[in-house]
């Protein structure tokens, strides 16, 4: 058994999970690139966090990184 098998055997679990996580990351990235100012951190930090720490990076961006008004 290898990685691919694990995923194909559990598609009903993986498909929504992947859609949600990719969607969340995309939403965060789009938001990061459409805004110049952040409550804390800078653009590079948030892009890296979003891409590398899944899905916590994107969540953190929306909660504490995004400029609030």
């Amino acid at each position: 058994m290898n990685n691919a098998d694990i995923i194909t055997n559990n598609l009903p679990l993986f498909i929504p999970l992947i859609i949600l996580e990719v969607g969340l990351d995309l939403a965060a990235l789009i938001h990061i690139f459409r805004h110049k100012n952040y409550r804390m951190g800078n653009r590079i930090l948030w892009v890296l966090l979003t891409l590398l720490v899944n899905p916590i990076g994107a969540i953190l961006y929306f909660i504490i990184g995004r400029e609030q008004y």
Partner: peptide
Amino acid sequence: IITVVFVIFGIEGPL
């Protein structure tokens, strides 16, 4: 955010 995160958590348990 709450919706997305907690749906993920809901899936993750059984997974």
